[in-house]
Design a protein around this nucleic acid. Sequence first.
DNA 1: GTAGATCGGCAACTCAAGCT
DNA 2: AGCTTGAGTTGCCGATCTAC
Length: 245
Amino acid sequence: MGIADRKNREKQALRERILGAARRIVMRDGFAALSMRKIADAIEYSPATLYLHFASRDEIARALCEEGYAQLLGSFAPLAQIADPRERLHALAHAYVGFGREHAQTYRLIFMENPSYTGAALGGAKKEGEADDDAGDAAFRLLTDALAALKADGRVPADADPATWAEALWATLHGIVALSLTCPVFPHAPLETIVDTTFDAWFGAPSAPARARGGKPVDAGPAAPAASPATRAAARSRKPKAPSS
DNA sequence: GTAGATCGGCAACTCAAGCT
DNA sequence: AGCTTGAGTTGCCGATCTAC
């Protein structure tokens, strides 16, 4: 412990203050309102000082994306323990859409602002104990693992590629979030209902016990999964296809 | 009415100089 | 010596003007 250590701590602390101020501005006013001068004003330093800690405004934005994506992954972590793959996917979908709505500015910044920000988030926000692959892989694997398990159970077509299905499912969920953030008239139904309906369309209605475990009302009548696109696809033995928009 | 030129404001970024 | 700053440069963008 010496002078160099103290200076490193102070440098790190200032970096955190910069990120904190930037985060507050983005949360309050949106990314478009984020400027180096506003950040500098907020932390009571000159704009030039910011460039000693971050090369550019973009670098600050990318750091915020990494933070936000790590937060999203954190919300997924406890759901990965759910044993039933359909329930797990269902919970992940609700968590994803919920995050998008509750952290709208963060979600916009990560996925709707700049492709390089998305890349930084997916590649940079590593979770504890996951040094070998990037955060994007970690999230994606949650989806592919669940889909592979559903495939093994015969709940998705035998020729389904879990990775392709995972991409399609992610794209669907992103569409739900993006529309809810940008389209004032979407959705008419509650978002939870939209997610549930999407799941029923993809995988068929869940069994009554599964719904009950998920806190949803138990239907009086029998479940009718045979009407789902997934099971129809299985019956026709054709390639999987995401629902068209 | 439209397209191009000009202007002004704003923000990112740089740098020389002062401060501790 | 290293840090911080104010002033300055550069570039972008929207508003306004002007010629056709």
